[in-house]
Write a protein that binds this DNA or RNA. Structure first.
Lengths: 151, 151
DNA sequence: ATCTAAATGTTAGAATTCGAATCATCTGCT
DNA sequence: AGCAGATGATTCGAATTCTAACATTTAGAT
């Protein structure tokens, strides 16, 4: 019986990318310091949660591991991040923000938030409450699935 | 006061791609008939809502207009869709599914749903209810923003 | 009627990303 | 200790997507 529910959910999930598209469209990202979307995302995620591994960040940013190497290289060349060898496991590398990287991350975060806020302007106070609650629910579910899915 | 709420929302929205990633990871999409992700998405969206224009579908699929032309070309070459000149506006072209295209779309839809259902297996009945409600809320908000944002 | 600006779809070269192979390191087993 | 398999990161050619042109058509103003 919950199978039908899952089908409905699957249909709704297929629409999420469009929601993202609506919110991000017209964004003047990419203009700050010659960074592309993946580089900006990476800075944002590192800023939010420093000390992750390459694989961690590649998942967060939504790239294949192989693709993320180039992003990290580019950010390193630009002096925004540094690679740090993992103390326990020498295969792993962590990423840390340089001072300049922190500054860039703050700017990007700020611009992102302003852009989203502007996009959300047509919504009523009640809509915003509903939306916030919905997104929190999804974040909670993502966390549950992430832990279980790691096997 | 609602500015702070919008900031929270912005932060949560930044996490949505990861949620999508968790749900889709390990998907055996791309194996059905030599179609790539964009082509499969396109078929799914056309199946769901036939008669849209190129630009409509490019937004749904999440591609730039220029990129979508190649996708439509490929699907047309494979005999899965056809271009239909718009009757009212000669700039516009619509996409329609051929019989074969409909069959392919049904298959893709089915596999997608099964995959998502399997991914959602760890969730309880209550979780599923919450998730469904949350996704419906988001879909509703997307609709509101889409209409207003069209200017 | 004519002109200007905007919208739709396409093209082509540049930029980005994928995915399979590879190297280095770690873990578990014997 | 030594070996087999697993894991983290990288490399690189192929596939995909972006972006800035462009041609065509429409809408609006004069």
């Amino acid at each position: 019986m919950s199978d039908q529910k899952k089908e409905i959910i699957a249909g709704l999930i297929a629409q999420l990318p469009m929601f993202m598209g609506i919110l991000l469209e017209g964004g003047n990202f990419r203009t700050s310091a010659g960074l592309n979307m993946s580089e900006e995302k990476t800075l944002m995620y590192i800023h939010r949660h420093e000390g992750g591994t390459m694989t961690d960040y590649s998942k967060r940013v939504g790239l294949a591991r192989g693709s993320f190497t180039a992003v990290a290289d580019s950010l390193e060349e630009k002096g925004l991040v540094g690679r740090v060898s993992g103390p326990d496991d020498r295969r792993k590398y962590g990423l840390v923000l340089t001072e300049e990287g922190k500054k860039a991350a703050r700017e990007i975060n700020s611009r992102f938030r302003q852009h989203v806020a502007a996009r959300l302007a047509p919504l009523t106070e009640q809509d915003l409450n509903s939306l916030e609650k919905a997104l929190e629910t999804i974040a909670a579910m993502a966390e549950k699935l992430r832990n279980r899915g790691n096997r």
